[in-house]
Amino acid sequence: MTTHNALYKYLLFLGDNGLIQGHRLSELCSNGPILEEDLAMTNLALDHIGRAQAFLKYAGEVEGKGRTEDDLAYKRGEREFYNNLIAELPNGDFACTMARMLIVSSFEYLLFTALCTSKNATIAAIAAKAVKEAKYHFMHSRDWCYRLGKGTEESHRRLQNGFNEFWMFTGELFEMDADFAALANDGIGADLTVLKPQWLTLVQPILADSNIAIPNVDYMQTGSRNGIHTEYLGHILSEMQYLQRAYPDAKW
């Protein structure tokens, strides 16, 4: 049986993934390697923040305390964020950024595809929009993986390095807790354990075609389902929330 609180937390998970990933990508605005990719990074950021806005708005309604999407974005502490750890990690170089985008966009594509049939009409509606965007993100990062992986020795090394950095954060994407399981059971949330083999089927051939070896990792990072994060989230929030913390309820 899905509790009210479980749904709220699930919406934070969906919204925070978009918000934190979008904020990370927005750091590349004016820092892209070439103009076209600068535009691409900011477009990716915009899609993520757009979906965050939709999910967090609904989260505020479900919570029922009159909080808006802005309140939830700017006035929650680190331990109240439920985004996957991979979203908060630094961008690294461009190859790293593309390695992460391949991992994240393929996961999001499968997640939103599954959520399109959610019994919760609002989640299904937002997912139906987000899945189209995630598909473009996936195609974009896939093409860059081919290009960098089969490019020069240096571009290959940098891309491999990117996957080496991020691979230990891929286990968490598919982690379920009691709330997630209850939501999946009720047809509201997605069963992430089912997505894992689908994800591997999607990603493995791309890595193989890009001459990238799947990293061997003995240990997968975990924590975000309980609000436990890497040190990087606090730094993102201190920047993102600065204005609202310094000047509460400031408007422009």
């Binding site: 076209e36 535009l39 477009n43 990716l44 915009l46």
Partner: peptide
């Protein structure tokens, strides 16, 4: 295609 992402979210270059 120059870029899958263009001057606005709905366009490619």
């Amino acid at each position: 295609v120059v870029s899958q992402f263009g001057s606005t979210a709905c366009k490619a270059l």
